[in-house]
Computed example of a mutant assay.
Amino acid sequence: MFISCEDTKQLIKDKQAQLVDVRTPEEFMSTQLPGAINIPLHEIDQVAALKLDKARPVVVFCRSGQRSYMAQQILMGQGFTDVHNMGPFSAWFQCPD
């Protein structure tokens, strides 16, 4: 289940949620969302604890929602308790800022 773009933007505004793009660096360079950081799926298990704050919500996304689902499962397995999957990055553009 994906979190809506409205809920994503509200989490960022109200709770300083961390927006994480799990696509490849090449994909990230082609289209970046405001405030997103790039942690490719193949690196997330090694670097999430170094780059992300477990006390703040995390919203992951990718191209289709498949990699972000896997990233969500990895993060929850590492003890992140507030992790949301926005699905495809294009969902960001489905609601106003």
Rank of each mutant, 00 (worst) to 15 (best):
D45K: 14
F28D: 02
D45W: 05
V47T: 15
I39H: 09
Q18G: 02
M29A: 14
Q46M: 12
H42I: 11
D14F: 00
V20W: 00
L50P: 00
H42Y: 14
R23V: 09
D7V: 00
V47S: 12
D45T: 13
L33E: 06
A36Y: 06
P40M: 07
T8L: 08
M29T: 11
Q16I: 01
E6F: 13
L41A: 06
I12P: 01
D7T: 06
A48I: 04
K15L: 07
L19Y: 03
F2H: 11
L33H: 06
H42Q: 14
K13R: 15
V20Y: 01
C5R: 08
G35N: 08
M1V: 09
K15R: 15
I39Y: 07
L19G: 02
K9M: 10
D21T: 02
Q10H: 10
K51I: 05
V47Q: 12
D45I: 12
D21N: 11
T24C: 09
E27Q: 14
I39C: 07
I3T: 13
P34T: 04
V22R: 06
Q18Y: 04
A48M: 05
I12D: 02
D14Y: 02
R23P: 07
V22Y: 09
D14A: 15
E6M: 09
L41P: 04
D21V: 01
L33Y: 08
Q32H: 03
Q10R: 15
L33I: 01
I44T: 01
A36W: 08
I44E: 00
M1E: 11
Q32D: 01
G35P: 03
C5H: 03
F2K: 09
S4A: 06
E6V: 13
Q16D: 15
E43Q: 15
I44Q: 02
L11G: 04
